[in-house]
Design a protein around this nucleic acid. Structure first.
Lengths: 326, 326
DNA sequence: GTAATTTATGTAAGCGCTTTCATTTGGGTT
DNA sequence: AACCCAAATGAAAGCGCTTACATAAATTAC
C-alpha cells in the first residue's frame, strides 16, 4: 500500500479511502490510485485491515458434517449468497461432537467475524458462553425451539416425527418402526424418533420399535430393515431418519422379495433427489432446506446492515411429499 | 491480554510467551498465567496475532462444489486432519466458474494462509499469478498433469476414461456411449470423456456417442439414457461420469424393461456408497478420494514443518471395481 | 473580496499481538 | 566472595492497515 501511495503521489490514508470508500475521494485521484494499484498488483492485507477496522468480512458457519447433503446444500447456497455481498464463509465441521464444536466456536470467535451461524440447539456451556459474549449476531439454524441464544431459524424435528406417526396412523398401520442413524449422537434425528414414538403410541396405543443405524448410508438401511423384521416381524411400515437409509431398505426389500408398498410401507426423510427416482418413488418428509439457507442469509444481512434489527425465532415447518412407497 | 498481564503481575511479552511458547517461561509463572487467563476467560485475538506473527493458521482450500460427495469427503477428512495440528480450513466453492475461483483465490491469499489448496489444473491467468506470488505452499489436487504450479496430487482423468474404454473393448462391446454431466464446465469429466472417446475409437474403430447431462443427479441419468438410446439404439454399454447418473439410468432401465447387464451394460464412476447396494450392484471406477485427502494433508504438513521439502507431483491412479452391471 | 462552509487530503494514533534486544536474575565455578 | 554464563523477563518496536482529527483547497454566500 505504501508503494501504491508513493507511486500515485498521495498519502496512505488517501489510498485506503480510494479503495475502501471510493466516494470519499475525488474522481481524478481515485482513478489514478485504482490504476496504480492495479498496475502494481496490489492486494490489500485483510489481516491488517481487520485489526484496524472493527470487523472482518468473515461469517463463521458450523455444521456437524460436510458430507450430509442437507448441510452441504445449505452451505453452498449460503456461500454464494454471502459472497455476493462481499462476505466470506468460514466453515467448520465437528462430526456431531460438542466438544469439538466448542473448540471450533472459540477459534471462529477469535477472528471476530461479522456473524456466527451454528447448527442446532445443543451446545456445551462454554460454547454458549463464547457465543453470547461474541459481539456479533448469532444464529442457531436447522432446529426450532424455545428461546434461542440470539436468533433461531429452523423447524421442529419433533413435529416432523409426529407428522410421520400421524400419517402412518391415518393409513391404518398397526405395527410401525422407526430407523434412525446414529441416534446417540444426532440429536435432530433423535428428536424425530422421539416425536414419532410419542405420537404413534398416543394415536394407536402401540409402542413402535426404534432401531439405530450406525451411519446414514444405504448399506445400513438394508441391515436395519433385516433387524426390524427380525425383532418385529409383523411390521407393516417403517419411517427412516434419512432418504438414503430408506433407499437402502428398498434395495434390500427387493432382494428378499418384499414388495413395496404392498408388503411394507416406507417413509423417508429429506426428499433428496434420489427420492424422486426410485422404483417405486419414495414418499418422504421434506425439511425446509433451501428456506433455511435463504432465511439465515437474509436475516444476517439485515442485522448487519441495520444493527438494531431484532432477533427472530422462525419455525419453517416440514412437508410430507406423497409418492408411491406408502 | 493486557488484563491478564496486569492481574498476573507480569509483562505482555511474558503472557504472550506463556501462551504461545510455554517452554520459554518458568513453570511457576506459566501456571500462574495460564490460571489467570482461564479465570478471566481470555481469548487471544487471532487477527492481531497474525498481523504481528508471520502467518495465519489458516489453510485455504477451494473446490468447485460442496455438494459433490467427493469434494465434501475430501474436505471433511482434511478438516479433521488439519484441525488436529492446529490449522483451520478456509473453504471456498466456485461452482466450476474460473472467474469466481479467481476472486476466491485472491480473497484467500489476502489472509496470507499457511497453504493454499485448489482443485484441478485449469485456472485463469490471474489465479495463477496470485497463486504463484503467494508465499505459501500451493497444491493443485484431484488432477494429475505435467508441471503443476507448485505441488500436484491427483490422478489422470484421461487415463480413467481410457480405462473404461479398454474395459468395454475387452468385453467385446461394439457400440458404446459416454454420458457426462456438465461436460462444458467440468473439465475433469471432460477429460474422462475425451480419454474414453479416443481409446475406444483406437481399440474398436468405433466412435462412441458422447452425451452431456445437465447435472450430476439421478434424474438426468434417466433422461440421458433415453437420449442415448434414441440417438444410437444398438448401444450395448454406457460409461457414466458419475455413479448417480449411472444409478438414475439403472432406475430408468428398470422402468422401460431393459435388463442390466443383459441388454445394457453400465459403468459408473466414483464408487459411492450406493454403488455397492443397487440391484444389480454397480461396476464402477474408483478415484483415489481418500488417498488424495491424506496425501495433501501429509504433504502440506511436511512443507510447513520443513520448508525446504521439495514439491511433489503425484499420480495416485484409479481402480476398476468389478461388480455386476458389466 | 472576504468570511463561512463544504470537500478533499494529510498526519498520526492506534488495533492487539509477537518478537528482538537489552536487562535482570539465579545458579554454578573458582 | 567474586565472577561468568545461561535462563527468564521486560521494554519497545513494529505488523499493514483504518480512521479520528487537523489542515488545506475549493465552493458558496454575502
Amino acid at each position: 500500500m505504501e508503494e501504491v501511495a508513493k507511486v500515485a503521489g498521495v498519502s496512505l490514508a488517501t489510498v485506503s479511502r480510494a479503495l475502501r470508500t471510493p466516494e470519499a475521494v475525488s474522481p481524478k485521484l481515485r482513478t489514478r490510485i485504482e490504476e496504480v494499484s492495479r498496475r502494481l498488483g496490489y492486494a490489500p492485507n485483510r489481516i491488517a485491515g481487520s485489526l484496524a477496522g472493527a470487523r472482518t468480512p468473515l461469517i463463521g458457519v458450523i455444521v456437524p458434517s460436510l458430507t450430509n447433503s442437507f448441510f452441504a446444500g445449505t452451505l453452498e447456497q449460503m456461500t454464494t449468497l454471502f459472497e455476493a455481498k462481499g462476505y466470506q464463509l468460514m466453515i467448520g465441521q465437528h462430526g456431531y461432537d460438542t466438544d469439538r464444536e466448542e473448540r471450533i466456536v472459540a477459534a471462529f470467535a477469535s477472528w471476530n467475524p461479522s456473524a456466527l451461524v451454528v447448527t442446532g440447539r445443543a451446545h456445551t456451556r462454554n460454547t454458549l458462553n463464547t457465543l453470547s459474549s461474541s459481539a456479533c449476531p448469532v444464529v442457531e439454524m436447522w432446529d426450532h425451539g424455545e428461546r434461542p441464544l440470539d436468533s433461531g431459524i429452523g423447524f421442529s424435528n419433533r413435529a416432523a416425527g409426529k407428522l410421520a406417526a400421524r400419517f402412518f396412523a391415518e393409513q391404518g398401520i398397526a405395527k410401525a418402526a422407526f430407523v434412525g442413524a446414529i441416534l446417540d449422537k444426532d440429536d435432530r434425528a433423535r428428536a424425530r424418533a422421539e416425536g414419532f414414538r410419542q405420537e404413534f403410541l398416543h394415536l394407536t396405543r402401540f409402542e413402535p420399535l426404534i432401531v439405530t443405524a450406525n451411519n446414514r448410508e444405504l448399506g445400513e438401511g438394508g441391515s436395519a430393515l433385516k433387524r426390524v423384521l427380525g425383532q418385529q416381524p409383523e411390521t407393516s411400515a417403517i419411517a427412516f431418519s434419512g432418504d438414503m437409509l430408506a433407499v437402502g431398505a428398498m434395495f434390500e426389500a427387493d432382494r428378499i422379495g418384499l414388495s413395496i408398498p404392498g408388503d411394507l410401507k416406507i417413509l423417508g426423510y429429506g426428499d433428496l433427489d434420489i427420492a424422486r427416482n426410485t422404483n417405486p418413488r419414495l414418499t418422504t418428509i421434506r425439511p425446509p432446506h433451501n428456506a433455511i439457507g435463504e432465511a439465515v442469509v437474509r436475516h444476517v444481512l439485515e442485522r448487519l446492515e441495520a444493527p438494531d434489527t431484532p432477533s427472530v425465532n422462525l419455525d419453517l415447518g416440514v412437508k410430507l411429499i406423497l409418492r408411491e412407497t406408502v
